[in-house]
Simulated scan of single mutants.
Amino acid sequence: MSAPQVAATRRLMHLARIVRGRAHHPQRFMVETLAGAIEDAADIIRDYPIPCLDEVPLAANFPLREATDLLTQHDFMIPAAILGYATAPLTGVLPQMEPLNAVSLQLARQDADLRARRMALIEHGHLNSRDEDVLDAALTGLMGLHRKHERLAATVAVDNDRPCHRGKAPADLASH
């Protein structure tokens, strides 16, 4: 098994465990369905040969799509972007946290802070840590940051649409 396969499998298995412990849904079997789909993807990535180092095995696409659909169609309090962090060793692509272009200085600062905290987790290599607790904390931290960013995006959309903010350029943090 290649190093990217090992890393992706490990991240997915940790993510499945985190989902079981942290996901919320009124129907508990939905949490188990989500965790099971993530584990199925990990098993396939572990067991199937990968023709190219920069792709997920075709067979793993079904459980990953199922997990993505569950995360986007139901509120488990876990953002779908977290799956991209788990598969990044194979795809070479990390999920992004795009700037929200907030007009309000306070909201722009919150946005910048969340993006900086995300970057720190990635740059410090916590997703590649051999320590189980560090990997769990990194995945959990990224879930929280993306969740906060999603909520902030909704707030920014409302704030930017206020009559006094319409047509204004995003706040310039460099000048403050």
Results as ranks from 00 to 15, higher is better:
residue 165 H to R: 14
residue 23 A to W: 03
residue 46 R to N: 09
residue 61 N to E: 14
residue 119 M to N: 12
residue 112 A to W: 07
residue 86 A to T: 05
residue 116 A to M: 10
residue 168 K to Q: 14
residue 10 R to E: 15
residue 50 I to K: 09
residue 107 L to A: 06
residue 174 A to G: 14
residue 164 C to M: 14
residue 148 K to V: 00
residue 82 I to H: 02
residue 143 M to P: 00
residue 66 E to P: 01
residue 28 R to D: 14
residue 128 N to E: 11
residue 110 Q to S: 06
residue 166 R to Y: 08
residue 160 N to T: 04
residue 14 H to G: 08
residue 68 T to Y: 10
residue 62 F to K: 13
residue 97 M to D: 03
residue 47 D to N: 15
residue 18 I to Q: 00
residue 60 A to I: 05
residue 34 L to P: 01
residue 98 E to S: 11
residue 164 C to K: 15
residue 137 A to Y: 08
residue 72 T to N: 10
residue 85 Y to A: 01
residue 121 L to S: 02
residue 104 S to A: 13
residue 17 R to V: 08
residue 34 L to T: 05
residue 26 P to Q: 06
residue 164 C to G: 10
residue 46 R to P: 02
residue 47 D to V: 08
residue 121 L to Q: 09
residue 40 D to N: 14
residue 175 S to K: 14
residue 2 S to V: 08
residue 126 H to P: 08
residue 92 G to P: 12
residue 68 T to H: 11
residue 73 Q to M: 10
residue 59 A to Y: 09
residue 80 A to C: 03
residue 30 M to V: 11
residue 55 E to R: 10
residue 19 V to P: 00
residue 60 A to G: 05
residue 88 A to K: 12
residue 163 P to K: 09
residue 23 A to Y: 03
residue 153 A to M: 03
residue 12 L to I: 07
residue 95 P to M: 12
residue 108 A to C: 03
residue 65 R to A: 15
residue 125 G to A: 05
residue 113 D to F: 07
residue 49 P to W: 07
residue 153 A to I: 01
residue 41 A to H: 06
residue 49 P to I: 06
residue 26 P to I: 02
residue 176 H to Q: 08
residue 140 T to P: 00
residue 22 R to G: 01
residue 134 V to W: 09
residue 161 D to F: 04
residue 73 Q to A: 11
residue 7 A to T: 05
residue 32 E to G: 02
residue 103 V to E: 03
residue 78 I to N: 01
residue 129 S to V: 13
residue 3 A to C: 00
residue 157 A to L: 14
residue 155 T to V: 07
residue 116 A to C: 07
residue 176 H to K: 02
residue 161 D to P: 01
residue 73 Q to N: 09
residue 96 Q to M: 10
residue 124 H to W: 11
residue 58 L to A: 14
residue 91 T to W: 05
